[in-house]
C-alpha cells in the first residue's frame, strides 16, 4: 500500500505545483490547500501504514500504529487551516483594494523610489 500511496502523493504534489505556478491568485490558494493534503498523506505514509491498532491504549493490542506522525499531522492540519484562511483573506482584501487577482498585475509597487 505504501507504494501506491507514494504515487498518489506524487500526483497530488504535481497538481498542487501546477496550480501554484498559475497566474490566478485563487488557483494558487487552492494549490496550497492541495499541497498540505499531500504533505499530510506523505508523512502518514512514511510512518508506516497498518502496522497495528489505532494508537489508543484502550485497544489492548500487541502492536500500535506509529503515534508520532499522527500527532505531527494533527498539528499540521490545524496550522494549514490557519494559514489557508489567512491567505484567503489576503487575496480577498488584495482584490478589494486593487481590483485584480492576476499575479502579473499584482506585482509589488516599486520599492523605495
Amino acid at each position: 500500500m505504501e507504494i501506491v500511496m507514494a504515487f498518489v502523493v506524487g500526483i497530488i504534489f504535481m497538481a498542487a505545483t501546477y496550480l501554484m505556478l498559475s497566474k490566478s491568485l485563487l488557483r494558487i490558494i487552492i494549490g496550497t490547500g492541495l499541497l498540505s493534503h499531500g504533505t499530510h498523506l506523505l508523512v502518514l505514509t512514511m510512518g508506516g501504514l497498518k502496522n497495528g491498532a489505532a494508537p489508543l491504549l484502550g485497544e489492548h493490542a500487541a502492536q500500535y500504529n506509529d503515534p508520532l506522525p499522527q500527532a505531527l499531522i494533527l498539528t499540521a492540519i490545524v496550522i494549514a487551516f490557519g494559514v489557508t484562511s489567512f491567505f484567503l483573506v489576503l487575496a480577498y482584501r488584495a482584490y478589494q483594494e486593487l481590483g485584480t487577482d492576476n499575479m502579473d498585475r499584482l506585482r509589488g509597487t516599486k520599492i523605495n523610489e
Partner: peptide, 15 residues
C-alpha cells in the same frame, strides 16, 4: 515540466 518534476521527486523520496 516543473510540476511533473516535483511530483516525480516526491514519489521517489517517498519510495
Amino acid at each position: 515540466l516543473i510540476s511533473i518534476g516535483v511530483g516525480a521527486i516526491v514519489t521517489a523520496i517517498a519510495l
